[in-house]
Write a protein that binds this DNA or RNA. Structure first.
Lengths: 353, 353
DNA sequence: TTGTAAGCGTTATCAA
DNA sequence: TTGATAACGCTTACAA
């Protein structure tokens, strides 16, 4: 064995620390730290020397230690109602990808649609010293009290998709109103004159806005809104079937339905088919979310795409802006993404009715 | 204002540390630490005193500091190929839920099906001082070299679903072979005599095992395997269409298809419908994964459920076992989940053909 | 340009 | 049963 190449220099099992590098090179830890963090006041020669050894010994920085010292980690906390369906996984996908590109890792939390868990999640994330928190609210969250602590600690906070309106917060949202407007308008342009609406819980911004957009479109066609044609529910598949049944039993049933969610419009489609009512000839349908199955049903379902991936990216971008703007006076930042209408068979009347 | 209740005692903006509690009570930090971590050597009175003040001042432990000191955090790292479709989001959902119950938070990483990213993810997670790593392998991962470091550091490592076989690792997998066997057997019992198979990349355990199960079933019916009937691909929707086309062009086409994935069987269904071939009367179909859309197509698709949620839970449970067994000699632990066949219209022949 | 040394908030060791 | 003190690995005034 070559004595000039002792075992010590091989990649060891236990992590190499800055102190190890410093000792090996006969310099101070400060120097090593500066070299590694690309600090300005360091000689290029020393820097190279350090970097070379670091690579050789496969030095890996201990982020925990840095985080503890700086009081801020390279972790981003994300709170979502749940990780299922198409929307949230896709947004998380976008967030993780963008965050990693910026050198952050993502801690994920589920509130399971309960504000109590949301509160616990906040504590967990604060204890983990996250650099920022990205949240989409639980269904029953009605105020911001539990976010006050985050703000007070000066930790960047960005809401996405599900937000509480009227408060002074940073947020990334879809222009739900516009999406609903376009979709309803499309149905009207296809010749529908009695368009119904499956509406979701109105305390949630997204559903409120979709209903607004629906009403906007009616107005732009000089059609009076008819509360009889608006069915409120939680937008499940079963409620879609039920809602459709209800609409059909009206003395004057609709000739089109715009639903604020895809599951419910699928339910409607199933019911209509079971009764031999033709879609779109007798009743045209359109939904919201552009779920995977909308391109599979027969007929395929028209729906509004929510730009899940972009939403994730935009949320991280907004977070990064806040990081860079730290210290400067707070002002509210909002990003509004434009929805995209995917027109499919379920809403395409062949010419005027 | 009551001078005995100074402002200081109100919940402050900046986190309360153990030192604060110690000073306030006139005891040492050690005592506080012991009280909070439920150490054995502490008087019950002191303990109560500490806990009470901790609650009052809303003390929140700094996990980073503890992690730094102990060299181990309350974080679990998860590496998945991507967060999309039904399977991985559901597993992650299961993991997050189980982990949180056990007091752990989850850091999520995507390999994007590339072993190079997988390597980076490992580094990231090790630097974050995670307590353990849960992995489902990227498509092009062919060896375990990059996991050696994890093992050497004594950090619990559990693989799930996509593993490399033959190596001595802890893993949670689905009994893919059994699932495939049951499904193919079901097709044969429905009267099919020439069952084809859409097979995935054979270096992945899951696809290899599904093919095996398919062959097992043929053998149990004394049917000779026919390589002509096995179509290899990446199991996309388009490849399903293409594969079906190919099978139909055979001199002696199949009367049933078992696919190792749902997208491809959907492709097959679409192609058959476009050609006016009836499912299941002319050709019966069955897939694998029990994707959401299988219950929506017409006819609805028979498929094997992968127990995503349970897989997540089992993976965390196995991790916890490893944590508790630390120090004891290593032995390989494997959990095999039983798949569940969902029989739907696409495979139900009405009586013998 | 480089070094010294004091923390960050815990836990672990040893002594009282 | 308690307490003083030294780590854990890193950053950052402040000094040289």
């Amino acid at each position: 064995m070559n004595p000039r190449k002792p075992k010590k220099e091989e990649v060891p099992d236990s992590p190499v620390s800055m102190a190890d590098l410093a000792k090996e090179l006969g310099v101070s830890m400060t120097t090593v730290s500066r070299a590694l963090s690309d600090h300005y006041s360091i000689g290029p020669a020393t820097k190279q020397k350090v970097l070379k050894l670091a690579k050789k010994l496969n030095y890996q920085p201990n982020h925990m230690a840095a985080a503890l010292r700086k009081g801020k980690s390279k972790l981003i906390g994300v709170i979502v109602p749940y990780i299922e369906g198409r929307f949230f996984p896709s947004v998380v996908h976008g967030i993780e990808t963008a965050a990693r590109k910026a050198g952050f890792s993502v801690i994920i939390c589920q509130s399971n649609e309960d504000v109590a868990n949301e509160r616990k999640n906040i504590e967990t994330l604060l204890n983990a010293q996250v650099a920022g928190i990205l949240v989409s609210l639980a269904r029953n969250t009605r105020d911001f009290k539990h976010f006050e602590k985050v703000r007070k600690r000066g930790i960047p906070l960005v809401f996405f998709d599900r937000i509480l309106e009227g408060d002074n917060v940073n947020a990334v949202v879809l222009n739900d109103r516009e999406g609903a407007f376009q979709t309803t308008k499309h149905l009207l342009e296809q010749g529908c004159r009695r368009v119904a609406h499956f509406a979701g819980p109105q305390h949630l911004n997204i559903y409120k806005n979709r209903r607004q957009g629906y009403l906007d479109a009616l107005r732009s066609f000089n059609l009076p809104p008819d509360e009889e044609l608006i069915v409120y529910s939680d937008m499940t598949l079963e409620q879609g079937q039920e809602g459709m049944k209800q609409l059909l039993s009206l003395p004057n049933p609709p000739d089109g339905v715009f639903a604020a969610g895809d599951s419910s419009i699928l339910g409607a489609l199933q019911l209509l088919k079971s009764r031999g009512i033709r879609v779109p000839q007798d009743i045209a349908l359109a939904g919201f979310s552009n779920e995977g199955f909308t391109a599979i049903t027969e007929p395929m379902l028209t729906s509004v795409d929510q730009r899940c991936e972009e939403m994730g990216q935009a949320t991280v971008r907004l977070f990064m802006e806040l990081v860079e703007a730290k210290g400067t006076p707070f002002y509210q930042r909002q990003v509004v993404l434009q929805p995209q209408l995917f027109i499919r068979e379920s809403s395409l009347h062949s010419g005027k009715r």
